[in-house]
Design a protein around this nucleic acid. Structure first.
Lengths: 193, 193
DNA sequence: CGAAAATTTGATCGAAGTCAATCATTGTGG
DNA sequence: CCACAATGATTGACTTCGATCAAATTTTCG
C-alpha cells in the first residue's frame, strides 16, 4: 500500500484532512516494515515517534519486577506510541514490539506538532485520536474495577472477538490484569459448559 | 469572578485562545453556582454539557449494585463532564454532584463543536484537555493494576496531598478501588508508625 | 526431530472483601 | 444552642477470589 492510500484511511477513520495537509503529512512520514519480535521502543528510551499500523499488530508492555505486563495492543488502522514518553518527554516505562510482520507509518512528534499548528484539520485528527483513546482507557478502568476475572475475559472477547487468535494468552492475561493460570482456568470452564 | 477572568485562566492552563475566540466562548458559556449536594448529571440522562470548575469541587460516580463508586474528582480549574454520555451521546452511567458550594462555567457540546470548528485555537484547547485526561487515566490504570491498597493510597496522596481534607474517605476509597474498611485500616497503620 | 516456549493443571496462601457492630462527627429543627 | 438523628469512620471476625509456586503437558518452530 502506498502512503496516500494509508493517509486516506486515516483521514476516513479519524477526521477529514484537506489535500494540502495530506500531502505535507505524506512528506513528513515514513513507511516501515518490521518482522515479528522487532522492537519499536525500549524501556528508558525517550520516544518521540507515533506509529500508525497499516498491517499487522504491536503491543506496548512493561517489565514490572521482571514480569512482562501488556498495557496496550494496536492492530490495523490503530495508532500506537510510548504514551508517557511521547507526551511528557520522559524515559518510556514501556517497550513496544511487533507481534507479527507489521507495516507502519512513522511520524515524529515535532512533525505532528508542526502539522497540528499549521492545519486545523490535523489538530482535529489528533484530538479525535486522543479522545478515542481516552474513552477506551475509561472503559478499561471500569472493567478492571468492577469485573471478575471471568467477566474481564468475556469483555475483551466482546471488544475483540478473535483476539485469542492474534495474541498469546500470556499477553492477553496480563492485559486484562489477571494471571495466565487464572485465564487458563476460565477458558477451560467455558468450553465445558 | 467574571467570565473573562475565568476564560483567561483556562487559556493559560490549557492552550492560548485568541481574543475573538475568547469573546465568542464567553457568549456561549454560562456561570452557574450550586450548593453542596446539588446534582449536575443524573444516571440515565444524556448530558451534552461540559463544566469548568471555577471554585469548589465535584465528583462523578456510579451506583453499581447499589454501591456508590466515585469515578472522578474535579477541583478548581478542572473540567468535568459525563464522559461517556458527552462523547458518545448515550445515557450517562454516571451521576455528577457538587461536593461543596461550587461555581462552574457551563458550555454545551454543540457550542464546543461550533467553536472547535471555527477556531483552531479552541480545537487545540479541547485536544489538550483530552490528552491530559488520557494521561491521567493511563496513570490510574497502572496504579490499579500494580499497586497494593496501601500503595494506591500513598499514590493518591502524592497527586493530591490534601485530598482527605476535601473529600470523604468513603468517596476516596471507592475512587482508588478499595473498600472503606481497608482504607481505614491503612490509615490507622500509617499514623502509628 | 528436539529444544524452547506456551499452556494447563494442582496445591496452597494471602490481601482485601464482606458482614456486622460500634464509635465519632456533623448538621438541623425544636 | 443543645439533642439527636443521620452520616461517616473504625474495628473485629470471617471468607473468598485470584495470586503464587511447582510440575506436567502441549505447541511451535529452527
Amino acid at each position: 500500500m502506498n502512503k496516500e492510500d494509508i493517509i486516506n484511511i486515516m483521514s476516513d477513520k479519524y477526521a477529514h484532512l484537506n489535500d494540502e495537509c495530506k500531502l505535507e503529512f505524506s512528506n513528513y512520514s515514513q513507511i516501515l516494515t518490521l518482522k515479528k519480535g522487532e522492537v519499536l521502543v525500549k524501556e528508558g528510551q525517550i520516544s518521540d515517534k507515533a506509529y500508525f499500523i497499516v498491517d499487522g499488530s504491536t503491543r506496548a508492555y512493561y517489565l514490572k519486577d521482571g514480569k512482562d505486563i501488556t498495557d496496550w495492543f494496536a492492530f490495523e488502522n490503530d495508532f500506537i506510541c510510548a504514551i508517557n514518553s511521547f507526551f511528557q518527554n520522559i524515559p518510556s516505562p514501556h517497550y513496544i514490539e511487533v507481534l507479527e510482520e507489521t507495516t507502519l507509518l512513522v511520524i515524529s512528534k515535532d512533525d505532528i506538532m508542526k502539522l497540528s499548528d499549521k492545519y486545523h484539520d490535523y489538530e482535529r485528527l489528533t484530538n479525535r485520536v486522543a479522545t478515542k483513546t481516552m474513552l477506551k482507557l475509561q472503559a478499561r478502568i471500569v472493567s478492571m474495577q468492577f469485573q471478575t476475572a471471568e467477566q474481564k475475559y468475556q469483555n475483551i472477547l466482546l471488544a475483540y472477538p478473535n483476539i485469542t487468535q492474534r495474541v498469546s494468552l500470556t499477553h492477553l492475561a496480563s492485559y486484562i490484569g489477571i494471571t495466565l493460570e487464572t485465564l487458563s482456568r476460565i477458558r477451560k470452564l467455558k468450553t465445558r459448559i
